[in-house]
Amino acid sequence: MSDFLTGIAFFLIIEGLVYALAPSVLRRMAEYLPQISEQQLRVCGLAAVALGVVMVWFIRGA
């Protein structure tokens, strides 16, 4: 459970840094987002999940 909470904490840190350091980039991304198809967003999301799982697997020394 502590690993999970640490992961959430790191996510919040990174997300907070994006809002603090590059708010204009975030606004432009939000304006562009409706132009991207749901299928493309879904594929990118699944790719990010797969990459994250592989990274954790390697880091943990499977």
Rank of each mutant, 00 (worst) to 15 (best):
M1G: 04
M1T: 05
S2P: 02
S2H: 12
S2K: 11
S2G: 08
D3Q: 05
D3L: 10
D3M: 06
D3T: 04
D3R: 03
F4G: 02
L5E: 06
L5G: 02
T6F: 07
T6Y: 05
T6Q: 08
G7K: 02
I8V: 15
I8Y: 07
A9Y: 08
F10W: 04
F10P: 00
F11A: 15
L12T: 07
L12F: 12
I13F: 05
I13M: 06
E15Q: 14
E15L: 15
G16D: 00
G16R: 02
G16K: 02
V18A: 04
Y19A: 10
Y19H: 08
A20H: 01
A20K: 04
L21G: 03
L21M: 09
L21P: 00
A22W: 03
P23K: 01
P23Y: 02
V25D: 05
L26Q: 14
R27L: 11
M29E: 09
M29K: 05
A30V: 10
A30D: 14
E31L: 15
E31F: 10
Y32M: 13
Y32H: 09
Y32K: 04
Y32F: 14
P34S: 09
S37Q: 07
E38W: 12
Q39I: 11
Q39T: 15
Q40S: 15
Q40Y: 06
V43W: 03
V43A: 10
C44S: 14
G45Y: 04
L46P: 00
V49P: 01
A50L: 15
A50T: 15
G52H: 02
G52D: 02
V54F: 08
V56T: 15
W57M: 14
W57Q: 13
W57V: 12
F58M: 07
F58S: 07
F58C: 05
I59V: 14
I59P: 00
R60W: 01
R60Y: 01
R60G: 08
G61Y: 00
A62R: 11
A62C: 09
A62G: 13
